[in-house]
Design a binder for these strands. Structure first.
Length: 597
RNA sequence: GGUUGUAUAGCUCAAUUGGAUAGAGCAUCUGACUACGAAUCAGAAGGUUUAAGGUUCGACUCCUUAUACGACCA
């Protein structure tokens, strides 16, 4: 397709030279896909040529159309509508293109000339509570972007930076020590991450009670928040942690260990993985070294109280704190360390951070600080900034208990898929294990597709009912098309129908056949664009377009009943190729496709 | 207060980056299973693209101002 467009551009450029004696570079021409309501596949916008050629847009279209029809065999027809020259590509050319696609092995990279060594950091949870809906968007985005970049031939490392230290973890630990009675995930029968979360909630509850009590005693709210005994205890615990207090460290290791087991289970269930883990406890010291480096280079400065700052006013940002007066690190300190470590480990030419857009400013600062330090990898950093997920009831707020838990949500979507699938009654003959696997594939397919089809940059609304829907613009709609193709191929095999034939001499194509080939031919463009813009939504839209086009084709023409042997083989092959394309696209989204459903 | 993002059909989202009559899904209405899987397909209806100006042959897209909602920085 890309090649075909290049050829058409070149031909148009030549046509302009011949017909008007003016030179216009091929890549300057404005070419776009022809809109559905007109005949043709490629459209030249001739408005932009009127000045250079000194003729009206319609006149130009007519002249170029005639020249191409006469001189370019691949153009079988044309029509001019106002300033648009619509070009029809010969069916034989489409078939040639199709044959090329069929012969391409699965997993052939789409070379884009983009970055080759990439690190994608995503998920990056705190260890004081379990994953929620917002994390799911992050995880699905990160996994998918990594897969998309891989599809362009890049070597991609998926990294997870675990925020395993800080005041929030101490809160869970403190509450556990006070109220836990030695409970463990095993003894309580709950996942480790949920157990930690339980004590975090417990801390918040008692903490709030203490604040209320202080307020009742006449203490001002902001002071009460700082002076509540639980908060003081948590801060003491954090200091002890930084000093390496044995008891605190032991408890910290124990609780984090539980949390990691819980996370691993969730990651496995939702089908994401990581090649490399980083822990903030292991990078914040390295970050402090970077701060020291900046002081020595004279790009950072120390205030009277001993705190370290960087002046980013020239970059359009403010002064930014890098290290507290007491020498303890802040978030950005650790990020400086992690960036350095990642570069040491992988020497990337692109480092993607999948982080919500509430941290846009923070990420700008990080990049600016690394530039101040003259780090070679500063420009390779890309913040994949995604919008937060809202509920119909508004923002998710842990304080108000409106957070949608990831594990629970996954259970619900799988259950919904199970109910719907059993209702359809099309899966007789599958074992219990196979059925369970299928429900999981469908439920997760629905959820992932729902979260990935929206442009990452945009804030999105999570509607629970729509997220488990199996009809319309959904994951299961696409999965269904794949299952139907798989069924068709099984039948074709039973009937001894070959998928191989000489496609080039089939004669005229049906409209739905031609459209199907055009869709299939777009794949490389789609991957290129998705990689360039870090947008799985583009792939999601494409997978839907494929399924939609196939369903139309399927309704309009007969495949197995087609009397002409060559056409029959072609349609089976077209179906098979569509199945491959759907599977490949969905894989880029991290979504499995079933053989039946 | 400063910086920044968003605003498209009743609802949720698109619009190939400045091109044709702004497209899908859901919801509503109509039609298609004794044809290869109806989780499907075909069709109807639904829009002053928040508002007002501006640039352009041409604006949902770019510029200015205003309004609403969000995020961040104090």
């Amino acid at each position: 397709m890309q090649q075909l467009e290049q050829d058409i551009r070149a031909a148009l450029s030549a046509a302009i030279q011949q017909a008007f004696g003016v030179t216009v570079a091929a890549d300057q021409l404005v070419i776009q896909p022809t809109r559905k309501e007109f005949a043709g596949s490629f459209t030249l916008v001739t408005f932009s040529l009127t000045k250079a050629l000194g003729k009206g847009p319609e006149q130009i279209g007519q002249a170029l159309g005639e020249w191409l029809s006469a001189h370019e065999v691949r153009i079988s027809g044309f029509n001019v509508v106002k300033g648009f020259l619509n070009l029809e590509v010969a069916d034989r050319e489409w078939l040639r293109l199709f044959q090329g696609l069929v012969q391409q092995p699965d997993g052939t990279p789409v070379l884009t000339g983009g970055p080759q060594d990439v690190v994608v950091e995503y998920s990056s949870p705190n260890t004081n509570k379990p994953l929620h809906l917002g994390h799911l968007r992050n995880n699905f985005l990160g996994y998918s972007v990594a897969e998309i970049l891989k599809a362009t031939g890049a070597t991609v490392t998926k990294a997870n930076l675990v925020n395993d230290r800080g005041i929030h973890i101490c809160k869970s630990m403190l509450a556990y020590r006070q109220y836990g009675n030695g409970e463990t995930p095993q003894s309580a029968g709950i996942k480790g991450d949920h157990l930690a979360g339980k004590y975090y909630v417990l801390f918040e509850k008692h903490y709030r009670e203490q604040i209320k009590q202080l307020e009742a005693e006449g203490v001002a709210t902001d002071i009460a928040k700082k002076q509540a005994p639980l908060m003081l205890d948590a801060q003491t615990m954090l200091q002890k942690w930084e000093q390496g207090d044995e008891e605190v460290i032991t408890l910290w290791k124990q609780m984090n260990g539980w949390v990691y087991e819980g996370f691993d289970e969730t990651y496995k269930t939702i089908g994401v993985d990581f090649d490399q883990y980083y822990y903030e406890s292991g990078t914040y010291l390295l970050g402090k070294e970077r701060v020291e480096e900046g002081l020595q280079k004279g790009v950072f400065f120390r205030k009277e109280n001993g705190s370290v700052w960087v002046d980013l006013k020239e970059e359009g940002l403010d002064e930014k704190l890098l290290l507290r007066a007491d020498g303890t690190s802040v978030y950005i300190t650790q990020d400086l360390g992690t960036a350095e470590l990642k570069y040491q480990d992988f020497g990337y030419d692109l480092s993607v951070y999948v982080i919500a857009d509430e941290q846009n400013y923070h990420m700008q600062v990080l990049k600016a600080v690394l530039k101040k330090l003259d780090k070679p990898y500063a420009d390779a950093i890309h913040h994949l900034s995604y919008g937060m997920v809202d509920l119909p009831s508004g923002k998710m707020k842990s304080r108000e208990g409106t957070v949608v838990d990831a594990d629970e949500l996954v259970r619900e979507v799988v259950e919904a898929a199970k109910v719907a699938t059993l209702e359809k009654g099309k899966i007789e003959g599958l074992t219990d294990d196979e059925q369970a696997q299928l429900f999981h594939t469908l439920g997760l397919g629905a959820l992932k597709y729902y979260l990935l089809k929206v442009d990452p940059k945009k804030r999105m609304l999570f509607n629970p009912e729509e997220s488990v829907s199996l009809e319309g613009h959904t994951g299961p709609f696409i999965q269904y098309s794949h299952a139907r193709i798989a069924q068709l191929r099984r039948k074709a095999q039973q009937l001894g129908i070959s998928e191989k034939a000489d496609f080039l001499n089939l004669g005229d194509l049906q409209k739905s056949e031609r459209e199907m080939i055009e869709e299939l031919a777009r794949y490389a463009n789609v991957v290129t664009e998705a990689a360039r813009t870090f947008s799985p939504a583009i792939v999601a839209q494409y997978a839907y377009d494929l399924a939609k086009a196939y369903n139309r084709f399927y309704a309009e023409v007969q495949v197995l009943q087609e009397p002409d042997e060559a056409k029959r083989a072609f349609r089976v092959a077209l179906s098979a190729q569509t199945g491959r394309a759907i599977k490949a696209s969905m894989q880029l989204l991290g979504i499995e496709v079933p053989e039946r459903m």
